[in-house]
Amino acid sequence: MQWCIKTMGRFYDPNEDTVIYYDINSGDTHLLSDFAAYVITQFQEGPLTAEELTIKVSPCLETLDFSDLEKTIQDILEELSALNILTRV
């Protein structure tokens, strides 16, 4: 299963651990963890599966402790889809 974003929204990142995301499609504004925001940016070039996404983001996670990256990614995808930011294709 693939995930995608209809139109990339706008970010306000004040260099804290949270980021503001303005969803252009819904007009909703979200306060997201910086990692969730990073996940969203990965969809810039097109749809991705959870596995492809994991491979894309893992290089920048070397120093972080993600005991179960796949599970984290899956949870974030579910949440972003519940917020209608991402959709399943």
Partner: peptide, 28 residues
Amino acid sequence: RRSDSFILAAYHSFNYSLLCESGFESME
């Protein structure tokens, strides 16, 4: 924190969401 302030100020706004993207830009 700025990100919290953003959300709180938007919550206290009469028309932040009405202004759509220009509301976001102004708040930023």
